[in-house]
Design a binder for these strands. Structure first.
Length: 595
RNA sequence: GGGCCUGUAGCUUAACUGAAUAAAGCAUCUGACUACGGAUCAGAAGACUCGGGGUUUGAAUCCCUGCAGGCUCACCA
């Protein structure tokens, strides 16, 4: 049942009957809270057609609708705005539809398929706050598309080769004394990260020593023994030196184990992992094919370029003069490989920070030039940096917020506040632990997802850890309270099932408001998908919880004497709980039965 | 220098496919548990939507311009 569409049809009928003509489209918008009604028709554009003033036009339409439309029960006119109230019967019908569809807001599988890439870290450093935003965003977008009937393929590309990992290897070899995650008790990614830092320290002191001997800065940067060692390792890696390969495999293995633990706690997962070490050569063939087709061109020195000046960009190198690949080449190869691996996907969503906007613009243009029609369906889900109150996160200054530490702190804070409120009598330690995890992670995920992805955001630790106000735990709390009501109802023998008939005929304004909010859910999910913005769902869940809390505070449910109205309130609390759970589920956030 | 993005109460955010007195949260102040869970609710106070022009019956929203901040423009990844 599409209220907007029905209303639109009725209004068109009214316009034809009243004025003999109708505009192409209507402007119907939600009524501002200070006025009575839910839908507002903006009459300024219509008044021209009607040949009457906006107010009179609005009044005429309102009267016509009241008499003929059926679903309109009241109207008022403010300036050129026609505010309409729909009848309780209409709202009850809307609610009946929601109640009777357990899959409300979920589209059955459509056969469509899409790929979402997120995370994609380097393997020399542990995951940090920025990765959390990335992973939560990608994971949420994947969930949202699933709700719209898509089969979603979650992937990431792991940057497992290159000079950065060789730096950690060189430092470990020099200073590690055979240290392993097992011997040190450190998580694998932390251990490798430690040696990356170690490299930097040793490198700097070597440069300083050389400079003191009178070597120029530039020469010192190249001559520093540990850097020479790292470069040497990279060359030997490319030559498939078995000793280097086994060291590389061992250290990357540590990192993957460490990452895996972090992903598990974050609640994200992947269907397939791509490794640059396995894909970096693949783009080269495509680029050479492009040269044959005349899409790219070769310079005298042998380097290959693409000319994007006609697209308002410049020329980009695709193969170095020595024939080796650059980053772009790899990404071309990886994209094509993915479409071969998953032939049914209609497109790819790349969850990557906004510093790579130019890169993706170029990548998609190149894929298009190579003749891949799916290039148009590739989307760069670009998101802004996460700043700290002290400014940008900088690893050099040690201001990076570690993902594991942050999740642990959030769970601890949740545990502390839960204890303080003392509502969890009789819970076992393991239940309590799971609850703290749910609330802490819920607060963190919600905090990072409620902001429009494309905006740069500020991460204030004090604010992120708050559990009141516009937060995840606020919504979790609303859900828990609804579940408590349903338990009480069940004790009294009242149950909710989708097939039940709602006998109530009258609604309280606060009930109407909640039903109107519930009704918006599918449209919000669609909007979130089309704009690749989980923030839409996050803000919706908050609005629904807030609307319900207002109802809850004004209407004592169980003191209602009319059984039909009591039944309605139980049923509708149940629906709100379900939608909150679903909406939060799309964000990767669980909701508790009690808290 | 070229390109892209952002600028909204003290702070963090909504609204950005043009509409009414710009909507919330935090912080501040005032109220509400003999009632279903106060991690809640009600109320007060708080904004010339960065500045200046323009289009429009109507601009936070669209156009031009200036200012501030960010990202980017490698034979790096």
């Amino acid at each position: 049942m599409d209220i907007e569409q029905i209303l639109e049809e009725r209004i068109f009928e009214a316009l034809t009957a009243l004025f003999g003509k109708r505009p192409e489209s209507l402007q119907i918008q939600p009524t501002n809270v200070e006025f009575e009604g839910t839908h507002t028709l903006v009459c300024f554009p219509i008044s021209k057609i009607a040949g009457k003033g906006p107010e009179e036009t609005a009044r005429l339409i309102g009267e016509y609708l009241l008499q003929h439309a059926g679903i309109v029960s009241k109207f008022n006119v403010v300036k050129g705005f026609l505010n309409l109230s729909l009848s309780d019967a209409t709202w009850l019908q809307v609610f009946g539809n929601i109640l009777s569809s357990p899959q409300y807001g979920v589209v059955p599988p459509s056969g469509k398929e899409i790929m979402v890439e997120y995370s994609s870290p380097n393997t020399n450093k542990p995951l940090h706050l920025g990765h959390l935003r990335n992973n939560f965003l990608g994971h949420a977008v994947a969930k949202i598309y699933e709700a719209l009937g898509y089969k979603v393929r979650r992937v990431q590309i792991i940057n497992d080769r290159g000079i950065h990992i060789c730096k950690s290897m060189a430092a470990w070899k020099n200073f590690g004394k055979g240290e392993t995650p097992a011997s040190s008790g450190l998580k694998g990614d932390k251990l490798v990260g430690k040696y990356y830092v170690e490299f930097d320290r040793a490198y700097k002191s070597e440069i300083k020593a050389l400079e003191e001997k009178g070597v120029s800065k530039e020469a010192a940067e190249k001559e520093a023994p540990i850097m020479k060692q790292a470069v040497d390792m990279l060359q030997r890696w490319e030559a498939k030196d078995p000793e280097i390969l086994s060291l590389w495999k061992m250290m990357n293995g540590w990192v993957y184990e460490g990452f895996e633990a972090t992903y598990r706690r974050m609640g994200v997962s992947f269907d397939k992992l791509y490794y640059e070490s396995q894909t970096y050569l693949l783009g080269k063939d495509e680029v050479l094919r492009g040269v044959e087709q005349g899409v790219f061109f070769k310079k005298e020195d042998g380097s290959v370029w693409v000319d994007l000046t006609s697209d308002g960009l410049d020329q980009k190198v695709l193969l170095r003069s020595d024939g080796t690949s650059v980053y772009m080449t790899q990404d071309i190869g990886t994209a094509i490989l993915r479409f071969r691996d998953f032939p049914n996907i209609e497109g790819q969503v790349y969850t990557v920070g906004n510093e790579q906007e130019y890169h993706f613009k170029v990548l998609f243009l190149i894929l298009n030039k190579l003749g891949y029609a799916w290039a148009r369906k590739c989307y760069h889900l670009s998101y802004g940096m996460v700043d700290l109150p002290s400014g940008k996160m900088k690893s050099r200054e040690g201001t990076v917020v570690d993902a594991d530490d942050l999740m642990a702190e959030m769970a601890e804070e949740a545990a502390r506040q839960t204890q303080e409120l003392g509502k969890i009598e009789g819970m076992t330690d393991s239940d309590l632990n799971a609850l703290s995890e749910m609330i802490g992670l819920g607060a963190l995920k919600y905090f990072l997802l409620k902001v429009d992805p494309k905006k740069r955001m500020l991460f204030d630790p004090n604010e992120s850890i708050a559990l009141q106000g516009h937060t995840g735990p606020f919504i979790q709390y609303t859900h828990a309270r609804i579940r408590a009501i349903l338990r009480k109802a069940a004790e009294r023998g009242m149950h909710v099932d989708p097939g039940m008939k709602v006998n109530a005929t009258v609604l309280d304004p606060s009930e109407r408001a909640v039903i109107a909010k519930l009704y918006q859910y599918p449209a919000k999910v669609l909007d979130a998908a089309q704009t690749y913005s989980p923030a839409v769902v996050a803000n919706y869940a908050y609005e629904l919880a807030k609307e319900y809390n207002q109802f809850y505070q004004t209407i004592p449910i169980f003191s209602e004497e009319d059984p039909a109205r009591l039944q309605l309130r139980i049923a509708f609390s149940n629906c709100v709980g379900d939608v909150l759970k679903k909406a939060m589920g799309l964000l990767g956030i669980d909701v508790p039965e009690r808290m």
